[in-house]
Amino acid sequence: MTTIIEVEDLRKDFGPTRALDGVSLEVEQGTVLGLLGPNGAGKTTTVRVLATLLAPTGGTARVAGFDVRTQPDKVRSIIGLTGQYAAVDEKLTGHENLWMVGRLLGMSKRQAHERAEHLLERFRLSDAGDRQVRTYSGGMRRRVDLAVSLVGRPSVLFLDEPTTGLDPVSRLELWEVARELVADGTTVLLTTQYLEEADELADRIVVIDRGKVIAEGTADELKDRTGGRTLEVVVARRDQVGRAQEVLCGLAPPEGVRTDPAARTVAMPVDHDTALAAEAISALTAAEVEIEDFHLNRPSLDDVFLALTGHAAETGEHHDPGEEHGRRFHGPLPGGADELLTDRKAR
């Protein structure tokens, strides 16, 4: 494995504000690094420095061995950047956008045309290729934006919050493309504030907060830091939630048992003891509690983030469709993640 992105002690000040306060990270070639953190943590600043859009105040950043400060054109010729906003010309057609970038990269007219056609087809935009981008849906814009950043076949792709504001289907599509790119050997640096997204895509995760790296590792390693698994039971009848709670309190320390009457859920910590989970289900059945559903949940990255930073990861985007979508993967959290987080914080 070769290291393709090397960042060492990177600092960036905007006037009196310190956006990056000594960030160091490394990305191996052909892997996905998830740069995870809340709004304002320094994710986008890191990407902008690596994409040669911002000069760092201190420290070094190298992409494929090229220094972003002294060899920006070398860096630019091997990177692709897809930002939070679809950076395509709305008045040009999808084809024209792709063609233009191909021409700027030095392709002949025919080469640029062929590359544009290939990418349109690959991103299922062939039918819309001759329409102005301003007529595209949000998902199509992101696709064409991603296609534009792939015209020059970059070895390193920066995806800066690529799915922010996307509908769940488009999000899944984008994840799919990202996986294919990585399978083909592209290195991806993904920034996200969606814990689910980092969990889905990233080989390794670097968590940053207030311009500093506060943790790094695989998603599993990060989750292991916050402890064991939880058994969650969804009770069929609301009037049985109380009884289910009594049963579980008989099996585990009562302070660990959480109930949410509204969601009809009861949860207890089981750590790695699956036998305890089975015992709990049997005990509930014996007590004639009607069970609708149950799961063993590992801690979500939400929990990880809270444990690491002492504050919740979400910053005001509670109604983001992607977040709800993300939760579906882990099953419902008792009482919703927010409530759970506040609960833990209080304790």
Binding site: S108, Q111, E114, R153, S155
Partner: peptide, 21 residues
């Protein structure tokens, strides 16, 4: 120029085109 396969998004540092200087 050989045609690029449709699903080929693979990175490449060698190109059959060159930027002017």
């Amino acid at each position: 120029m050989t045609s690029v396969p449709l699903d080929d998004l693979a990175p490449s540092s060698t190109h059959d085109y060159r930027r002017p200087r």
